[in-house]
Computed example of a mutant assay.
Amino acid sequence: MKKFCCVMLALLPLTAFAYPIDVQKQLNGLSIDYNAYDTDSDMASIQVNNYGTTDAICKVVFNNGPEAPRTRTIHVPAGKHTNATAKFTRTIIKMRINLSCSPK
């Protein structure tokens, strides 16, 4: 029984598919916050929150390494939030997201 428990505890890290997410941001003085998520092993998403009083246009670039970067342009109204997602063909090992926002 002890051996079985040790084997199960050793396999526990294999069940998690979380990967590190690095976010580089350029907010240009806007009151913007974000939450990045590892949605699936080949999909990433980011929620952009606008706490300011002006609408924002944000460009989000998802970079997985050898694959071509995925670029999304989103409109974030004042006091609201918007999501952006990107799906890749390979399993993500490390996600790099560039977020740049400007007033509308």
Score class of each variant (00 low, 15 high):
2 K>A: 10
3 K>G: 05
3 K>S: 12
6 C>E: 15
6 C>R: 13
6 C>P: 01
6 C>S: 15
6 C>T: 14
9 L>M: 15
9 L>K: 10
11 L>F: 14
12 L>H: 03
13 P>C: 10
14 L>T: 09
14 L>N: 04
15 T>H: 09
15 T>D: 04
16 A>H: 07
16 A>Y: 07
16 A>L: 11
17 F>H: 13
18 A>F: 03
19 Y>D: 06
21 I>G: 02
21 I>S: 06
22 D>I: 03
23 V>A: 07
23 V>C: 08
24 Q>S: 15
27 L>W: 08
27 L>T: 13
29 G>P: 04
30 L>M: 15
30 L>C: 07
31 S>I: 02
32 I>E: 07
33 D>L: 07
33 D>P: 04
36 A>M: 05
36 A>T: 03
41 S>M: 09
44 A>Q: 04
45 S>P: 01
45 S>T: 03
46 I>N: 00
46 I>V: 13
46 I>W: 04
47 Q>C: 11
48 V>R: 00
49 N>K: 13
49 N>A: 09
51 Y>T: 12
51 Y>M: 12
51 Y>I: 05
52 G>E: 04
52 G>L: 04
53 T>P: 01
53 T>V: 09
55 D>E: 10
56 A>R: 07
56 A>K: 06
57 I>T: 15
57 I>W: 06
57 I>Q: 12
57 I>C: 08
58 C>K: 03
59 K>G: 10
61 V>G: 00
61 V>H: 02
62 F>Q: 02
63 N>Q: 13
66 P>I: 10
67 E>W: 00
67 E>R: 04
69 P>I: 00
69 P>R: 00
70 R>Y: 02
70 R>F: 02
71 T>Y: 06
73 T>F: 08
74 I>F: 06
74 I>N: 05
76 V>N: 05
76 V>D: 04
77 P>Y: 01
79 G>I: 02
82 T>F: 04
82 T>P: 01
85 T>A: 14
85 T>S: 15
86 A>L: 00
87 K>N: 11
88 F>D: 01
89 T>S: 14
90 R>T: 12
92 I>H: 01
94 K>H: 13
96 R>M: 03
97 I>F: 06
98 N>W: 08
98 N>I: 08
99 L>T: 03
100 S>E: 11
100 S>F: 01
100 S>P: 02
103 P>K: 08
104 K>C: 00
104 K>A: 11
